[in-house]
Write a protein that binds this DNA or RNA. Sequence first.
DNA 1: TATCCACCGGAATTTATGGAAG
DNA 2: CTTCCATAAATTCCGGTGGATA
Length: 340
Amino acid sequence: MITDAHVFDDEHVPDRLLHRDAAVGQLARAFEPALDGAAPGDVLLYGPHGVGKTVLCRHTFDRLQARADAAWAHVETMGLSTAGVIRATLDALGGDPAPTTPREDLCLALRERVDRPTVVVLDEGDELPGGALARLLDVPLVGVVPIVHDRAEWRSRLADDHRQRFDAREVGLDRYTVAELADILDPRARKGLRTSVPRPYLERIADQAAGRARTAIQTLRSCAELAADQDCAIDAVNVRVAAERARTRVRRQTLASLPTHHQVVYALVWTADRLTPGELHDRYEAVADDLYRDRDRTPVGERARRAKLLKLVHYDLVERDGGVLRAVDKAVRPRVEIPD
DNA sequence: TATCCACCGGAATTTATGGAAG
DNA sequence: CTTCCATAAATTCCGGTGGATA
């Protein structure tokens, strides 16, 4: 059923970016100084999850690169410190800083490495440390593109002189309409699937996606997988079921990307169905020695567990209903086994 | 209402890690 | 090899919150 899984990847940049002409134009105009070898303009890019903010950057940059000698760094900033952001930027530009390089040395190394117009995209930049932004804005030839969800909140945390850098340099993306989403799904279905998908069915997928392209695309992929499993036509697949399957896939990927301590906490919550924080700690203590025996880590204290738990909640793997903890999705099985 | 209790999460401090310098 | 240093992660400390209870 699926002939080219690549078109369903989050990183896939389509040949044509549909229904984003205005935003592409704004961003391209901001990047224009790079055509003359100068720094691309800084742009604040804002909008809800999954509406193509990162893809918009990539797409516009690719078009720029076809006409200019420019470099690109995409940095996932969530949870990074100031030094962490600078290091990740340097990494993305091909530098190889030692893990203990002092912050100021990292800044110097970055300045040295940037020898052409460079676009630095700061993804998930809502909680970006102010220091990191300041250092990057300070590097010649660098244009900074923070991607955030809440434009007003982000601006309010900025120092005045930094805020000015983004005045009149803001690009906002909205959720797509159902018709727009169907337009976006259509070329992917043609390119990635063996059989064609009727337009009304694409619209039903779009309708489930709440205006988010990422959700719609992942749902289409699940529809195709289910159609293959059940050996039926794709439009015989229940869209709700496919959408849930898509969410499960994303959660599994998220869980797989987390380190040991998170895995243990998740396993405890998943295995218990419902439990209070107190019970979680009790069980953790009870099984910790067993679980960590042949791992290269040692059990952590309560405060650290709370931090892991917070992340699990943030990633939509665990929910807190009042005081009670529960795994959001029982289909996302833990990756470590809890002994009885 | 007053008070207790479990819990949360911010901030300061300590520890672990590993590259660099002597 | 040992010491030094910077970061990241964990621990310690603690004020604040909200629900339960007398």
